[in-house]
Design a protein around this nucleic acid. Structure first.
Lengths: 235, 235
DNA sequence: GACGGAGAGTGGTCGTACCAATTTTCAGTA
DNA sequence: TACTGAAAATTGGTACGACCACTCTCCGTC
């Protein structure tokens, strides 16, 4: 406040950057309990209120976790933590961005399916089978969405890249998924989806990366068609 | 505080969700000025301090922007806004996650290069040429890093998908890039990088999507080798 | 009409008091 | 001595009020 470093910034933003830097430099490590809010505020030279704002920001970013009465902890800093807010883009976007988002999925999901074809174990395959069955039996859209999500999540996990999982997890948020299912008004869409899931599943069973890649691309292609229609309706 | 919805949450978190919902439902629109902090707090039934924490969180998420003395605004909600914190994963990660991050780039950058081959205009090509020249003339690592980043950014922009641009923007953060360049200790690495950039550039000039895809994959493959060595050294 | 200054409004910061959840300490009992 | 339960202390969460720093609007003057 007395001294501005040329750029107009806030003490809270400075505290955010300082904590991030200390983490990046290894001074604060994954899972570590930090000093108390009060001590951090004193250490970094700002009020407790402003420090709380910084902590809230870092919490939302997945860097810190506040436990009421117990202290402030650095998260494990896993991609799942750090990309927690990634889903907001899927929740909020419409029109153009929705389409662009699906097009990114069209790049990533075939690659994930190909990697999964090489790596998925028998338990993973059994769980995929179970999700497909549960989807068939689904009583309502919400249940179907849940199993649809789980089907994709199992494949993505099997690909073995947590960054990829976190990104696809965000792109595949429940809210977004429910929008897609609600947007499917034509008859026969469930049957087609089931067939597409089955094609992916069979390629995984055969350990056929290219087959899985193509099947996933066809499947996402249908979602892309939907998103393109959404975009056109909004114009 | 008087009424908990089963799950233990905070009034601040509730306010965050409420604002997000109002945006997703179209009640608050891109670029709109929101009611004042004081009014929002009264409207949502919490204190101004807690409301400020919520606003800070939404600001860091790229959903809102606070202008000192002028009010709180909804951002344009573009992918570049909403994925602003995406870069934290690149800034903080090391070891395994660094490698996984590069592997995601290895999926996305070839796809971006292929799309760019179909779409880039003459101006884009000229700018790529200029960045390659500037990189050759770079006086120090920082300058080289800047032009390296810009080279990749031009290609990604030319692909025409803002979600993809934002993701690769985050994966390609300056901090991360500087780490890679600092990690390059062998001789000849600059020359190889230049050759790889040139191969990408030539494929773009030829409007050859597959050529661009392969050239980009080779280029990222080298970064992957570096990340793999980083991981092994840390074990 | 243009410019400058004053006042009002609004975000940013600080400090204090108190509440809500967790952890630690202490006393009592077996 | 060890264990348990209650009380005290600690720590995050919330609210409030005062004041500072910045922006915007309005009004007066040239």
């Amino acid at each position: 406040m007395t001294d501005d470093a040329g750029a107009r910034t806030t003490v809270t933003q400075r505290a955010i950057e300082e904590i991030k830097t200390r983490i990046a430099m290894g001074e604060f490590t994954p899972g570590q309990r930090l000093p108390t809010e009060r001590d951090l505020a004193a250490d970094l030279g700002l009020s407790r209120s402003s420090m709380r704002e910084a902590i809230r920001a870092l919490t939302v970013m997945g860097v810190l976790e506040a436990r009421h009465g117990a202290g402030i902890y650095v998260t494990q800093l896993q991609p799942g933590d750090l990309l927690e807010t990634f889903g907001v883009v899927a929740e909020i976007s419409r029109g153009d961005t929705l389409l662009h988002l699906v097009q990114v999925r069209k790049i990533l999901e075939p690659a994930a399916a190909a990697a999964a074809a090489a790596r998925i174990d028998d338990e993973g395959l059994a769980r995929l089978r179970a999700e497909m069955t549960a989807m068939e039996r689904g009583a309502n859209a919400e249940e179907i969405v849940g199993h649809d999500l789980e089907f994709h999540r199992i494949i993505t996990e099997a690909a073995g890249n947590p960054v990829l999982s976190a990104i696809l997890g965000g792109l595949n948020s429940r809210t977004f998924r429910a929008r897609v299912w609600r947007g499917y008004r034509e008859e026969g869409v469930f049957a087609r989806t089931y067939r597409e899931h089955d094609a992916i599943y069979r390629a995984l069973v055969e350990r056929d990366p290219d087959g899985a890649r193509v099947a996933a691309a066809v499947h996402i292609g249908a979602v892309e068609e939907w998103a393109r229609r959404q975009q056109e309706e909004e114009e």
